[in-house]
Design a protein around this nucleic acid. Structure first.
Length: 763
DNA sequence: GTAGGGTTAG
């Protein structure tokens, strides 16, 4: 019995030797047997339970103590925080203060962290006050926690009751003097804020833990008013990062964590140069950047699109064996992707020894951002297969891939998952859904999602306005744009592209000019290439070719793509003279512009100038300039079927061919006359018809007709603009087969129904 | 006590 008793003492004197939950329980039994009333023993046991994160056991024991010693409180506070029960953790801290116990330095890091995680600036400042009064601000760990807290508040855009951190509050004022003002009171005034839980509804929950705690909110309010009145003016001029800097400078000792915390704070608040300067300064302080430093710095080079600096970091990481770190891995993947070096992202991803949800998301997002949609989708499924649960970000990364590839079925499946997971109130995801549904041809559903959203930001407005624009619903787009202005949302660069696109697709030239001018006049946004392109497009379609020419010429350095818009208009309005002039401009800045060669040769062909057309073709062949092959695709039963013009490789080709033959007969009965004017080849009429007949969009539509149930909508996507004859043909087809056919080309949507197209033949 | 991934764009 004596032996057991002394063993007990040894164990309790060196609690670190207790190495398992089982041993802790054994120890518990021994205490109950020999020293049931020793609060010292019991609180040591609580600390052991807390060390193993056994919150329940610690609490049961804690509640048996009448006056828990400080060690018991500290253990519970830390254990709550470890379980992310921040309010409870803070509640326990309040209870400890109320019981008159003086906290020691190792409680504060977790208390400060809880304030940071709760984004409760007022509470954090109060805790800071308490720390200063107790002289704990010289503790390294506490100081680091404070740095982190204020840096987080800064990135949340929080400015406190004083407009800045606690140090500012004490700035220029003798700390001692301030404390003596409140001497004689049991606790410092600012601490009363912590004790008064009336103002913080989340803290009221903590009452269940500490029911005996109460405080007067009136006193606290007065306290804050006083502080605010005397320091408010100064406060407005400074930021929370100033407090971070100040704390940092006042720390008697700084370690890598201190440096990293401030560097990260600067990096996340857009103060890139300060962050980079501090990395250099770190060396002077004899501290080497570690994996934390690097992963805070990598996003800066991603933002700066500076791949050579990013590579330097990569090299440093390899030399110091940080390259296998998951954080560095995802940072590198993201950096390379943002620098358009997605191949390097993939390489980094492939050799990562460990992958977590974020590494997966980084690579998926990286692929999608660099237009590798299929690869992005493949990796997304691989991630799911690897049993990594998709998070909210995963969906906002992958939905644009569905949108681009017109994968409506997949998009719907993901939408279902999003709803089940309760992610549908996420602003990023909702905007992606709006975009995905419009790009897959379903504006109505997109609008329903948009209307259901609790709040709209610039991106969601842009997504829906652009959606209407692409479907030719200019009036809806404009009305939404006006609603947005009324709601006080300031239009930006992108949304003007959307509204100008809407006007141009519907031929609303006057409205287009109105918005174009209002950009500079009302919002101070200089029109960019994209806006001029949209304007020129609208003017060109409306036949105002000279006006468009003048507008483009007014640009400093018009690029090929702006001129191409006008060249397309020249084709529609059969203006060869201007077309040649425009083409010359294009070839001067962009001699390899494939689209321009094709357009010009089509223009020559339409004018039956075969010699000029073939001269261009020969020139292209000599130069090795290849035409982008036309391709159309359709999703049937979750599978994509792609067709190129004249393509006979599809397993159902015979049936497709047969269907087209039957359709052609019916179409001709209805009055369809093939428009062969744009077939550039100098061949016989009959052969031209054959060429038209094999156009990729027709193959895809025919396949849609035979492989889907009668009456269902057919959705086809084409990589380049739909040709004039196919447009006419599809109108006939929609009437004959009594189907709605939605054709998306690289420019806009066409909804064919009952022999008509939503674009009103204006495109 | 410190770190990484997201939406709109002819």
């Amino acid at each position: 019995m004596t032996n057991t008793n002394s063993l007990l003492k040894v164990l309790l004197r060196s609690p670190d030797t207790v190495s398992s939950k089982y041993q802790a329980k054994q120890l518990h039994a021994q205490i109950l047997k020999f020293k049931p009333s020793s609060s010292t023993y019991l609180s040591t046991l609580i600390s052991i339970y807390a060390k193993f994160n056994l919150l329940h056991d610690s609490l049961l024991l804690f509640n048996t103590l009448h006056s828990p010693p400080i060690l018991a409180y500290k253990s519970i506070i830390r254990c709550y925080a470890a379980h992310n029960l921040l309010v409870q953790s803070l509640g326990c801290f309040v209870q400890m203060r109320a019981s008159g116990k003086c906290p020691d330095h190792n409680v504060f890091p977790s208390v400060v962290k809880s304030c940071a995680l709760l984004s409760d600036l007022k509470l954090g400042e109060s805790v800071h006050g308490c720390i200063i009064r107790l002289g704990m601000d010289f503790d390294l760990y506490t100081g680091n926690a404070l740095l982190n807290m204020y840096a987080k508040f800064q990135s949340l855009g929080k400015s406190g009751s004083q407009g800045n951190g606690m140090y500012k509050m004490f700035d220029g004022m003798s700390e001692r003097m301030f404390c003596s003002e409140v001497s004689g009171e049991l606790v410092h005034k600012s601490e009363k804020r912590i004790m008064s839980m009336d103002q913080n509804p989340s803290l009221n929950k903590a009452r269940s833990v500490s029911p005996q705690i109460n405080g007067s909110s009136e006193v606290i309010d007065r306290f804050y008013r006083e502080i605010h009145d005397s320091y408010g003016e100064k406060a407005e001029r400074s930021t929370t990062m100033d407090s971070v800097r100040k704390i940092f400078e006042m720390m008697p000792r700084r370690d890598v964590v201190s440096w990293n915390t401030v560097i990260t704070g600067n990096a996340q608040n857009g103060m890139y140069e300060e962050a980079l300067m501090m990395v250099r300064e770190m060396g002077n302080a004899d501290l080497k950047p570690d994996s934390f430093t690097l992963s805070s710095v990598l996003p800066i080079f991603a933002e700066y699109v500076n791949v050579s600096k990013g590579k330097e970091i990569h090299g440093y990481a390899i030399r110091n064996s940080f390259d296998e770190d998951v954080f560095i891995g995802s940072g590198l993947i993201d950096m390379y992707a943002k620098c358009s070096r997605v191949e390097d992202s993939l390489r980094v991803f492939r050799i990562l020894p460990q992958r977590d949800a974020i590494s997966w998301n980084s690579i998926v997002a990286g692929c999608v951002q660099n237009s590798l949609y299929d690869e992005g989708l493949r990796l997304f499924w691989q991630m799911v297969k690897a049993k990594v649960k998709p998070k909210q970000v995963s969906f906002s990364s992958i939905l644009p891939a569905c949108a681009q590839l017109t994968k409506l079925n997949l998009g719907k499946q993901l939408h279902g998952y999003i709803i089940r997971a309760g992610f549908d109130n996420n602003l990023f995801i909702s905007s992606s859904l709006v975009d995905m549904y419009t790009k897959c041809g379903n504006v109505k559903v997109a609008r329903r999602i948009f209307d259901k959203m609790e709040q709209h930001d610039m991106v969601s407005w842009t997504a829906i306005i652009m959606g209407y624009a692409l479907h030719g619903h200019a009036r809806d787009a404009i009305s939404l744009f006006e609603q947005m202005e009324i709601r006080g949302v300031r239009p930006n660069y992108v949304v003007f592209m959307a509204v100008l696109t809407a006007c141009s697709h519907a031929g609303l030239v006057d409205e287009a000019w109105k918005y174009f001018n209002s950009m500079t006049q009302n919002y101070g946004i200089a029109p960019g290439l994209e806006h001029v392109t949209a304007m020129a497009d609208g003017l060109g379609r409306a036949g105002k070719l000279d006006e468009a020419y003048k507008l483009i010429s007014s640009l400093d350095r018009p690029v090929g793509s702006v001129w191409s818009t006008l060249l397309a208009a020249c084709r529609v309005h059969k203006n060869i003279e201007l077309a040649e002039k425009v083409a010359k401009e294009i070839f001067e800045v962009d001699p390899e512009n494939v689209g321009a060669y094709i357009l010009l040769s089509n223009i020559y062909a339409a004018a039956r100038r075969w010699r000029d057309a073939s001269k261009l073709r020969l020139f292209m062949r000599d130069k090795g300039i290849k035409k982008t092959p036309a391709c159309s695709w359709i999703e049937v039963k979750n599978k994509m079927h792609a067709f190129t013009s004249g393509d006979k490789s599809h397993p159902n080709y015979d049936k497709v061919h047969e269907t087209l033959k039957v359709l052609l007969e019916k179409m001709e009965q209805e009055g369809y006359v093939p428009d062969t004017s744009e077939v550039f080849h100098d061949v016989e009429e009959e052969q031209k018809k054959q060429l038209l007949y094999g156009h990729s969009e027709r193959l895809a539509i025919a396949f849609g007709i035979i492989s889907t149930a009668a009456g269902t909508t057919i959705r086809v996507t084409k990589n380049i603009r739909v040709c004039t004859d196919c447009h006419t043909a599809t109108k006939f087809i929609s009437k004959i087969v009594e189907r709605e056919i939605i054709l998306r080309d690289n420019n806009r949507f066409h909804h064919f129904k009952g022999g008509n197209c939503s674009c009103g033949d204006y495109w």
